[in-house]
């Protein structure tokens, strides 16, 4: 029974959104690896990319990808933009709803009249969110591996997993921003709005840094920089960069505990 604790209850609350998002990424991952041979032969991907202007290549992340394998194809199709957008958007939706959802629905009064510390409520909800993000990321991995197997495409499943870890950490950063803002104010819309705005701005700052000279000096402020800098799907996970992403998520999470602890909760 999933009604033992705030953690299990939250897992239960998130089961359908998690399932559907995981399914979407499963289909997405499977689509690109399944159809990779077709793309590779019909569209002559390597030559196609070579013809693109530098700015365009930067935007889609093509300057770091090698499309001669399905792994590289995934790297260019999903990992620079679509995957982080979906994963981060998912984490933002969950993070902003963690406690602010209970506040706006009015259930927080009942919940916090039971002997559970506020920090533990936030922690259990955050743990359930981490689990959901992992499941959704795993959906893409399973889809990609099955698609590659079916189409007999070359795919480095270990590297894909490593890149997914980085993407999940990036998503949790944005989820934590949403968590901090929403649990610190009780305003879910504020949490979503600011996090999505930061997601978009940080994406463009990093993507355009190679071609716009002014951005190069500030690109380290973008979380996308730490996510993509080491090109994880090609070279494997970077311990240093993953630690930066993890540290940001943990710091924001701890700040959420403090912010939520001190607040007057909405009636």
């Amino acid at each position: 029974m999933l009604l033992r604790s705030v953690f299990t209850k939250t897992v239960r609350d998130l089961r359908w959104p998690t399932f559907w998002t995981a399914l979407a990424l499963f289909v997405g991952g499977g689509y690109f690896t399944l159809l990779y041979p077709t793309y590779a032969t019909q569209f002559k991907l390597t030559e196609l990319l070579d013809q693109l202007p530098a700015a365009m290549k930067a935007l889609i992340g093509a300057q770091v990808a090698d499309v001669s394998t399905a792994t590289g194809f995934l790297n260019i199709e999903l990992f620079p933009m679509i995957l982080p957008a979906v994963l981060a958007g998912f984490a933002i939706a969950l993070g902003s709803g963690a406690t602010a959802g209970e506040e706006s629905r009015g259930t927080i009064d009942v919940l916090l009249s039971y002997p559970v510390p506020r920090w533990l409520v936030v922690t259990q909800k955050a743990a359930a969110i981490v689990l959901s993000v992992v499941v959704v990321a795993a959906g893409l991995w399973v889809g990609a591996v099955l698609g590659a197997a079916a189409s007999n495409s070359p795919l480095d499943s270990g590297r894909v997993a490593e890149a997914l870890v980085m993407a999940a950490l990036l998503a949790l950063d944005f989820g934590s921003i949403a968590l901090l803002l929403a649990s610190g104010t009780g305003n879910r819309g504020l949490g979503i709005g600011v996090s999505v705005a930061l997601l978009v701005v940080m994406y463009f700052v990093n993507a355009l840094a190679p071609v716009i000279s002014g951005l190069d000096s500030v690109k380290q402020a973008s979380l996308f920089f730490w996510y993509l800098e080491s090109n994880p799907i090609r070279h494997g996970i970077s311990i240093g960069d993953s630690l930066v992403l993890a540290a940001v998520a943990i710091a924001l999470f701890l700040a959420s505990l403090v912010a939520f602890e001190r607040r007057d909760l909405a009636a």
Binding site: V110, L111, V116
Partner: peptide, 22 residues
């Protein structure tokens, strides 16, 4: 609470079970 709000997707029995567990 005065303006009681409970979890809409739970049944009465599930609500009592959950709150009892808490």
């Amino acid at each position: 609470p005065g303006d009681l709000s409970l979890y809409g997707d739970l049944t009465g029995a599930q609500t009592l079970h959950y709150l009892g567990n808490l």
